[in-house]
Design a protein around this nucleic acid. Structure first.
Length: 510
RNA sequence: AGACCCAUAGUGUAAUGGUAGCACACCAGAUUUUGGUUCUGUUCGUCAAGGUUCGAAUCCUUGUGGGUCUACCA
């Protein structure tokens, strides 16, 4: 059940409003086609889950399609390892892409586009160094200055650009730039770099190319080639939009439309791939899939159901203002799903031995309990009950304050799906004074489901039968950082020192 | 400093000139074979000042606060 179906009166977010207007006006024949464009240089995280939910969700809602397109224009940082993990994570979340595509599929086409711009007098080869280009770019308050190479002839530009492609020049010696406007208040319009020389092996195209297009020259055109109708991205690309539109206009190609929305931030989590990579490389976590990581694979190992993650992203909403979603909303979404679907089991993390003194030695009986009280169709299971049990240490207090309603000396409590017991005696270690055993009486007629005892116990405890229990190791994980916005702390992150290393409970029984 | 974007309960998100609503969180109560779940209820909000209008969260102006942009990264 999606959240949408539970809201009878649907209010639209601003992207849905745009889409519905487009459908109403017959734009693109009412077609909706989105795309998810990850760069294969890291693992997907909770922020990507949001982008996935929006792109795939919108396509589904309006009967459209969503492509998976790897934005693989920088071979020096990308790897096929990431391509594989990204695909696995998307599938796990339950999304199905219409086409698996790569920006590198379009390298020949993109090269043709570049030639077209050169022929139209809209691009030139610049021999300036990176430093010179940066210096000539000016700054937000100062206009830039035109490169001395800006007025090269079309023939010379054609010859040089083909030379770049043919490997005639070393890395960094030349770039192809667009002729736009060096005095634009928008820095991205100041003759943006289109192509750079990089003699690097590409994970998809091998050594076929030694020039690679920049993001701005690849992304919009890829959208256009795929006839993407609504190209959704995050807010920081707002300033790229005029350039996105400029290329489409100058090239005369399919008019995809870029729409920016605010990326989702989650309290206590970081979603910077650079910082995440650092955590992995410096060994603060065991890997990209460490259960404390905000990665999809980390959340998978943590036991978060994929539907819960998607529900969470839907609940977080779509808008254009910066946001930090409270972790409680994610946890609510996870609990909501687990409550409905998870099969229950009893386990004792920190065992305290209980001896039922009036239960015959050597006797065992089988008790039945529901696998999931909220899902009767999941049936029942049997549990062995015997004279010696374990309960949770924290479920017992020798002298209980009035608001403690579990077991205490002289008090009664019910063992879940079993019997009511009364604690008669506390056995302590003579040296340490630590409670090591409780001697209790059980009431046979208080058996769950057929209780005729008339007794009332205010607390219910989970338990396991000592001779039947298996030892287990359990790892308790907490959030990685103590501060809700860890990246506010420049120069360092705030570790949650109490859980920096997961701790295990070797005595656990289940 | 310039250009652009944003501003509604604690958090997030609706209301598209006409009753400020929803979710999570919080608090209180009911139910409950785990203090969980479920159900009910309370508290809490339009950044500020002007203007337009019968009427402004919504439109206009100014201010304030926050964000983005100055990679041969995406």
């Amino acid at each position: 059940m999606s959240i949408e179906e539970t809201n009878e009166k649907k209010s639209l977010n601003f992207i849905e409003e745009i889409i519905e207007e487009d459908i109403a006006s017959g734009k693109h024949g009412g077609r909706v086609h989105t795309r998810f464009p990850p760069e294969p240089n890291g693992y997907l995280h909770i922020g990507h889950a949001k982008a996935l939910t929006v792109n795939f969700g919108l396509a589904k809602k309006y009967g459209g399609l969503c492509n998976l397109r790897f934005d693989d224009t920088n071979p020096s940082t990308e790897d096929v390892e990431y391509v594989d993990s990204i695909k696995a994570d998307i599938r796990w979340l339950g999304f199905e892409w219409a086409n698996e595509l790569y920006a590198s599929d379009y390298f020949p086409k993109l090269y043709e586009f570049a030639l077209q711009l050169i022929r139209d007098g809209l691009a030139y080869v610049d021999d300036s160094t990176p430093e010179e280009i940066a210096a000539m770019k000016g700054n937000p308050t100062q206009p830039g200055t035109e490169s001395p190479y800006r007025r090269r002839s079309i023939e010379e530009n054609l010859r040089l650009f083909q030379g770049m492609k043919n490997g005639e020049f070393p890395d960094g010696s030349r770039v192809l730039r667009a002729i736009v406007d060096m005095s634009s208040p928008n820095m991205h319009m100041r003759d943006p770099v289109l192509y750079r020389i990089k003699h690097a092996h590409h994970h998809q195209t091998g050594d076929e190319w030694c020039i690679y297009p920049m993001y701005d020259f690849a992304h919009g055109q890829s959208d256009s080639i795929e006839e993407i109708t609504h190209s959704l991205c995050s807010l920081e690309f707002r300033h790229h939009r005029p350039l996105y539109d400029w290329f489409i206009e100058q090239l005369g190609i399919f008019p995809s439309r870029q729409i920016e929305f605010a990326r989702m931030n989650v309290a206590y989590m970081i979603t910077s791939k650079r910082r995440l990579l650092k955590l992995v490389q410096e060994g603060h976590v065991t890997g990209w899939d460490d259960p404390r990581m905000p990665t999809i694979s980390g959340m998978r190992r943590r036991g978060y159901p994929p539907e819960a993650i998607v529900n969470f992203c839907e609940r977080a909403g779509v808008a254009r203002r910066d946001n930090v979603i409270e972790l409680e909303l994610l946890e609510f979404s996870v609990r909501e799903l687990l409550n409905k679907t998870a099969l229950r089991a009893m386990a004792v993390l920190d065992p305290l031995k209980v001896v039922i003194t009036n239960y015959p030695e050597g006797q065992t009986e089988s008790l039945e309990t529901e696998n999931n009280p909220e899902a009767p169709e999941t049936g029942n299971r049997k549990m062995p009950f015997s004279r010696e049990l374990f309960i949770e240490k924290e479920d017992f207090m020798e002298e209980a304050p009035k608001n403690f309603f579990r077991l205490s000396l002289g008090g009664m409590a019910r063992l879940k799906s079993a019997f009511i017991i009364r604690c008669d005696e506390v056995v302590k270690d003579p040296e340490s004074g630590e409670i090591v055993q409780l001697n209790c009486t059980y009431f046979p007629e208080s058996r769950s489901g057929s209780d005729t005892s008339g007794l009332k116990a205010k607390g219910v405890l989970h338990w396991v039968s000592a001779p039947h229990a298996s030892p287990a190791e359990v790892r308790l994980y907490d959030r990685l950082f103590t501060d809700p916005t860890p990246t506010d702390h420049e120069g360092g992150t705030i570790w949650n020192s109490s859980t920096r290393t997961p701790w295990s409970l070797p005595r656990m029984r289940w």
